[in-house]
Design a protein around this nucleic acid. Structure first.
Length: 501
RNA sequence: GGGUUGGUAGCUCAGUCGGUAGAGCACUGGACUUUUAAUCCAUUGGUCGUGGGUUCGAUUCCCACCCAACCCA
């Protein structure tokens, strides 16, 4: 519990809340206002599944006693009989309440509010209209809700409130609950997929002395006892590869990383990735794995490999297209000449033309990627692997054997968005040391996204990293794809927001 | 970072060519023993995002700012 006495926030109050507070005050006078001695023995949706199809007469011959509880979402008082709909985590079921059966409790119920949490005990039956309901013999108020719920018909549509008060969104919007249960199913599938391949799930530091594994701005924090600056990780990569050095040949981690960047429909400062590393594999093995994983997810989660996303029809049934970065640059930049793609001066003239800003020390590889991101990336709607990324922008990836300008690295795009990034790992310690030096000189030239030199990581490589391939998949974006969500905030339970004013 | 749109009752939304603001639902009171957004009758409810400016008067016009959504970089 935190101490808020210093600056007690002013909470919005209104007559609706005042009335409910008065009701709560009366409850306190008559006994325990927040009882916790009721135990239900049935869930709403289980009852509907088990008994929903039974005829009305069946219930006359079979007395089914149930104890249910949940939040009241509808209340219809009709004189000496009433209906209430309660919702538990499985679904909803209707309660039928009669004055003759409930006496004083019935009168009390008339004063209870939508949003209150009730417990009902009684027998199952079907109403005239055929809705499975509980004819209640004992009714209790378990929790008095002090705040009114949104409009029962229009619901809650205001994005800001849905994100800031997700609990209200979850009470009201079934679609929202669905997105998050799907998110959990996706992550469960991913775990079982990797576990079945004998991968081991591990946890590595989020609080790091040297943030590594990606080019991004880190969050900075401070460790008081050690009096030192620390960082929230931007990726788990370097620790996971240390584990491969240690002999755990297949490892993965599903957890948060943090990047100190702006907010958008595609970016949250903290986001979830799976990173996995597999010894004795290369980047092509990982492209195959991504394909199998996506197929399995489609089959298991959606039941189809044809996805509608933002009005676009995506075909995930076929093997995914595989093309090189230079192919993409040529294809989506009409007029650019393939045999000059490694000529810095030539690429600069294209950057000028495309209004792409570049730095003096940007080489051909960096400029290629800038051009691709400007002209090609957003056009990769159907699932596509783009591979052969320049070594210049891939400081942790293994160089291609035939062409040292590029690495054995790919990124995977769907809907014009990067969903995954994988490569054959650089396991030449001396090459890695050189690449770190390059990054450090970029950093001293003012590139605050450039990497730090991680001497311990180089030392680990010097013991020998087996030939290894590594992959990272953005879980939030994957969930967006599979739930047809167009904003990352729709797949994060508590997305980052600016403070309320 | 740039552009567009929005912020009015608890919720969903109207509206005011500048004269202290409305509806539906919710709430409160009443009627009603099989409802499904129950229905019917009668009420209650607002610092019109915040701060300035213009004006006799601003929720409305102007400026700045805050928050959000969407698009672009």
């Amino acid at each position: 519990m935190s101490d808020t006495s210093q600056d007690q926030p002013v909470v919005d109050e209104n007559h609706l809340i005042a009335e409910r507070r008065a009701k709560l005050a009366k409850l306190r006078e008559t006994g325990q206002a927040f009882p916790n001695d009721f135990r239900r023995d049935a869930l709403a949706d289980d009852l509907v599944t088990l008994y929903g199809e039974r005829e009305s007469a069946w219930f006359d011959a079979n007395v089914i006693d149930v104890k249910v509880s949940g939040r009241m979402l509808a209340k219809r008082v009709m004189g000496k009989a009433s209906f209430a709909k309660i919702q538990d985590h499985s679904g909803q079921i209707q309660l039928f309440l009669q004055q003759t059966a409930l006496a004083d409790t019935y009168e009390a119920f008339k004063g209870w509010d939508v949003g209150d949490i009730l417990a009902g005990e009684g027998t199952l039956f079907k109403t005239k209209t055929g809705e499975l309901s509980v004819k209640v013999t004992t009714l209790r108020l378990l929790v008095k809700s002090l705040r009114p719920l949104p409009d029962k018909w229009h619901g809650l549509s205001d994005h800001e409130t849905r994100y800031r008060q997700r609990y209200v969104d979850l009470i009201i919007n079934a679609e929202s609950r669905k997105v998050f249960s799907t998110r959990t199913r996706i992550i469960k599938y991913l775990r079982s997929f990797l576990d079945a391949m004998d991968f081991m799930e591990v946890e590595t530091p989020m609080l790091q002395v040297i943030p590594g594994g990606a080019t991004a701005k880190p969050f900075v924090t401070h460790h008081n006892a050690l009096d030192m600056q620390m960082y929230l990780r931007i990726a788990p990569e370097l620790y996971l590869k240390r584990l491969i050095v240690g002999g755990f040949e297949r490892v993965y981690e599903i957890n948060r990383s943090f990047r100190n960047e702006g907010l958008s429909t595609r970016h949250n400062p903290e986001f979830t990735m799976v990173e996995l590393y597999q010894a004795y594999a290369d980047f092509r093995d990982l492209m195959d794995m991504v394909e199998r994983l996506l197929h399995g997810l489609c089959d298991t989660i959606l039941g189809t490999r044809s996805i509608e996303w933002e009005g676009q029809q995506l075909d995930l049934a076929q093997p995914f297209q595989r093309v090189t970065v230079e192919d993409m640059v040529v294809q989506y930049t009409p007029g650019i000449e393939r045999d000059k793609l490694r000529d810095v001066g030539y690429l600069r003239t294209w950057c000028d033309q495309l209004k792409i800003a570049y730095k003096d020390n940007d080489g051909a590889g960096k400029l290629q990627i800038e051009i691709f991101e400007k002209t090609g990336e957003h056009r990769l709607i159907q699932p596509t692997f783009v591979y052969s990324y320049p070594a210049e922008v891939s400081p942790l990836a293994r160089r291609n054997d035939a062409d040292p300008f590029i690495t054995d690295r790919f990124e995977f795009f769907v809907c014009g968005r990067e969903l995954a990034n994988g490569f054959s790992e650089l396991n030449d310690a001396e090459d890695q040391a050189e690449r770190f030096h390059e990054q450090v000189s970029r950093k001293s030239d003012g590139d605050d996204e450039a990497m730090f030199y991680d001497a311990d990581y180089v030392r680990a490589l010097e013991y020998g990293l087996p030939p290894t391939a590594g992959l990272g998949i953005g879980i939030d974006r994957l969930v967006m794809l599979l739930t047809n969500s167009n904003s990352i905030r729709d797949v994060l339970l508590f997305p980052h927001m600016r403070p309320e004013t």
